[in-house]
């Protein structure tokens, strides 16, 4: 029984070692420029989502017209800023 257990221990140790060192996956290289561009796009997406939400809340009657207009304008300005950044990133790369 002990011998069997010892054999199992050796076998599993070898298996674990093989598993750990056999892998040779290519990790995705993440260039700073790509990461930055991705971040900006996420930001833009978030702002667009905010705009959709805002519009929906307005349609649902939760917001007064001036509140809606003002928030929409501010979000659009914010989105434009991000779009300009995206363009700049494109130029840089």
């Amino acid at each position: 029984m002990t011998l069997l257990a010892a054999f199992a221990c050796v076998f599993f140790t070898a298996l674990a070692a093989w598993f750990v060192f056999a892998g040779d996956e290519r990790l995705p290289e993440d260039s700073p420029a790509a990461a930055r561009l991705r971040a900006l796009r996420e930001r833009k997406q978030a702002i667009y989502d905010n705009l959709r939400d805002l519009h929906f809340e307005f349609l649902a009657g939760k917001l007064a017209q001036p509140d809606y207009q003002r928030s929409r304008q501010m979000l659009e300005t914010e989105a434009a800023r991000v779009v300009r950044e995206i363009q700049r990133c494109g130029e840089a790369s």
């Binding site: 659009e76 434009a80 779009v83």
Partner: peptide, 16 residues
């Protein structure tokens, strides 16, 4: 950039 954003948003929300 702002014009583009406004146009995009207006189109999307209008479509919706």
């Amino acid at each position: 950039a702002l014009a583009r954003v406004q146009a995009e948003i207006a189109r999307e929300l209008g479509d919706w």
